[in-house]
Design a protein around this nucleic acid. Structure first.
Lengths: 163, 163
DNA sequence: TATTGTTATACTCTATAACTATA
DNA sequence: TATAGTTATAGAGTATAACAATA
């Protein structure tokens, strides 16, 4: 499984502060992500991509097309087909044909899927709350804001060919 | 390639603030990591695990055993064997037999490996500096400190069975 | 027996590309 | 022709387990 390399160990004194920051960011995230992944598997026998797909559907009770799922998950279509096939086998999601365009389906959670997802989401949230609990509410807010700035900065690839 | 799902879209109003923070953390990290991975491949034809292994060796000029590499990279031994095999084929690292214990080797960078790594590391650092450049120096410091707190908190699994 | 490392194998996640059926 | 989705395949990246050589 691997519970996260401590990549931060790579940082050396002569490295730029930004690099140290990045390695620390990577190290924290990987550690949390690996824990979540492992617990989702152990507790619910589900993988992160499948959990994510169900989360997408939970937000859209009216359902989503395969293409829209593919776009939202930033994953190519073939992969969505595979995940939906699995979840459909377990009767957690359903494909419904669309009137109007017979090439396309609407995928949505089944009642069983909604129920299963909500149990998983509850646990998942507890894990995350617990793992972040070493930061005060105020610190979490600060972190949230800083990451917001970072994220906005990443939006434009920031390849400003220095003129 | 995939340049990072925007997982943050999963966050909903009724979700705990910690969950939103986690999704944002994941989203930022994934986006940077995917970019780095892609550029390492395009620019140097190298994967992240191979880059990481070379980084480990660069920090230890006297070399490391396979087992120690496996521990530091938090990856099982078979995988280290594969990576070292590849890098040895390209003459970037070398295995040297140890006097004293003939089961074990010392792996270290060759001069060519040192040279190649230092060129890659320089570029890599530039990419990172650029991607983080939307944050001021002061903001980066703040972020670094907050993540330090978080990381310390993660060290003990924080499974404090609430009494 | 225990340890170091290798080999063989499998599974998850992702991508690309050829294909089918509609439109 | 173009689009929605599927199938087939490949390649990272990881794990486990059986194995060989040495301690």
């Amino acid at each position: 499984m691997g519970i996260a390399t401590d990549m931060e160990v790579r940082a050396r004194d002569d490295h730029h502060a930004s690099l140290r920051l990045w390695l620390r960011l990577l190290s924290c995230t990987t550690r949390i992500e690996d824990t979540v992944r492992q617990r989702l598997r152990e507790t619910f026998g589900i993988t992160l991509p499948r959990f994510d797909l169900m989360a997408q559907l939970e937000r859209e009770p009216q359902g989503l097309s395969m293409g829209e799922l593919s776009r939202r998950m930033m994953v190519t279509g073939g992969n969505v087909t595979t995940i939906v096939d699995q979840l459909e086998n377990e009767q957690l999601v359903q494909r419904q044909t669309q009137a109007g365009d017979r090439r396309s389906f609407t995928v949505s959670l089944t009642p069983a899927g909604r129920k299963a997802f909500s149990a998983m989401a509850r646990e998942h949230e507890e894990w995350v709350v617990d793992m972040l609990s070493s930061l005060s509410e105020r610190q979490q807010e600060q972190l949230y804001k800083l990451l917001g700035n970072l994220k906005r900065g990443l939006h434009q690839p920031s390849n400003q060919e220095t003129p």
